[in-house]
Amino acid sequence: MDRKFFNKPSLETLNQMGKNTISEVIGMEFTEIGDNYLIAKMPVDHRTHQPYGLLHGGASVVLAETLGSVGAMLMVDDSKYACVGLDINANHIRGVKSGWVYGKTTPIHIGKTTQVWQINITNEREQLVCTSRITMAVINK
């Protein structure tokens, strides 16, 4: 998709938005912003583990939802519109015990009232860990 972000803040601004939220608690950090994609990383450690010592699927969904929601927000004039989640799904492909995972979100559909974003999460060896899709509603403020 060729549509570019309406707003393109700095990485510092994106990371500041996560202060005092779940993003900060689990150590998520935006690392790259393109014309229409975002990349963030998340540690795989005690904050994001499930009881068996693997990356918790819910932590992957938090990363996916954060990336898709922020991507959607950057596609609209946020003085007029807000983007809220309608649906998210995730397929967990591979377990991760430690290190970092990296999520990249790209738009599939950018409409006037809905957006659909694809999020792929990979490990440090660039192997797919989780694939997710989020549908966002675009509403008037």
Rank of each mutant, 00 (worst) to 15 (best):
R3S: 07
F5L: 12
F5Y: 12
N7M: 05
K8T: 15
P9F: 02
E12I: 11
T13Q: 14
N15M: 06
Q16L: 02
M17V: 00
G18M: 09
N20P: 00
E24P: 03
V25P: 00
M28D: 03
M28Y: 04
F30T: 00
E32V: 07
I33P: 01
G34N: 11
G34Q: 12
L38M: 10
L38N: 04
A40Y: 06
K41G: 06
K41N: 11
V44L: 10
H46M: 06
R47Y: 05
T48I: 12
T48L: 10
T48E: 10
Y52A: 11
L54H: 09
L55Q: 02
H56S: 04
G57E: 00
A59Y: 00
A64M: 09
E65Y: 06
G68M: 02
S69W: 11
V70L: 14
V70A: 11
G71S: 14
A72I: 06
A72S: 15
L74Y: 04
D78Q: 05
S79Q: 04
Y81M: 12
Y81A: 09
A82E: 11
V84R: 10
G85M: 07
L86N: 11
I88W: 09
I88P: 07
A90E: 08
N91F: 01
I93L: 05
I93G: 02
V96W: 01
V96C: 04
K97N: 13
G99S: 07
G99K: 05
G103D: 09
T105H: 08
H109V: 14
I110T: 13
Q115I: 12
Q115W: 12
N120A: 08
N123D: 15
L128Y: 04
R133K: 15
I134G: 12
T135W: 09
A137H: 13
I139H: 11
I139V: 15
N140E: 15
K141R: 15
